[in-house]
Amino acid sequence: MARQVTTRRKLGMTAVGWIVALLIFFPILWTVLTSFKTEGTAIATPPQFLFFDWTLENYFEVQSRSNYFRHMMNSIVISVGSTLIGLIIAIPAAWAMAFSPTKRTKDILMWMLSTKMLPAVGVLVPIYLVFRDWGLLDTRTGLVIVLTMVNLPIIVWMLYTYFREIPGEILEAARMDGATLANEIVYVLTPMAIPGIASTLLLNIILAWNEAFWTLNLTASKAAPLTAFIASYSSPEGLFWAKLSAASTLAIAPILIMGWFSQRQLVRGLTFGAVK
């Protein structure tokens, strides 16, 4: 028997639910609104909520003053690049662990997880020195390498939990029907594996995009992604709230949309399958 929900109760919950949701979301909303204000309106007291002269000038200004798109390209190259390389390394590994598990598979998985728990400061000094000596400081290549390694355990784990759900019997059935190995991979396994791979891709681009320890410590200006670029607004330049807001809105919008699409996978990916 389903629970009886009275309309009045539901309306009450609607009000409470939306108030809480809007309060939590408010800082983001406020940032987006401020990005369309002039600097004067942005710091006005009392604050202007909706009825001000909307302007796009901050967006142009952010681009012309600091070459915003170079930093955005850095973010794209670093997050997409590190995720793709990570997938290339992780897919075979996760595949092998899911389909021909041995006694040690679990140990390997747990060990991979444990590398993720190593605090970054524990390896900051040597990585910094090696990067300095190899000329990798402030380069996209350097950051792609680091972020690939940082997120590799999560990629392997996520793929593993997805691959494990592909029933092994289906392969036997295909084999019985005379499918060759190539057929098996192209027609049976790939279609079943693609959703899992896509979710993993999405979540890891998000994680890499927002990574703010290595990006801040290993870049200066040339290869700085948006995380590091926006940190430069912490100087007195941060008083330009409208520009800070425009830069921030552009930096979070694409990833927020991706995040909304991947919200279900998020739980799975970030808890290493411990909560589904």
């Binding site: 809007l22 979301f25 983001i28 406020w30 703010a212 926006i230 940190a231």
Partner: peptide
């Protein structure tokens, strides 16, 4: 969706905002 949004905001942005 509104409730989970802050998780996707990069740390430097949320700190400065």
């Amino acid at each position: 969706l509104l409730v989970i949004a802050p998780f996707f905001v990069m740390p430097t942005v949320s700190a400065l905002v």
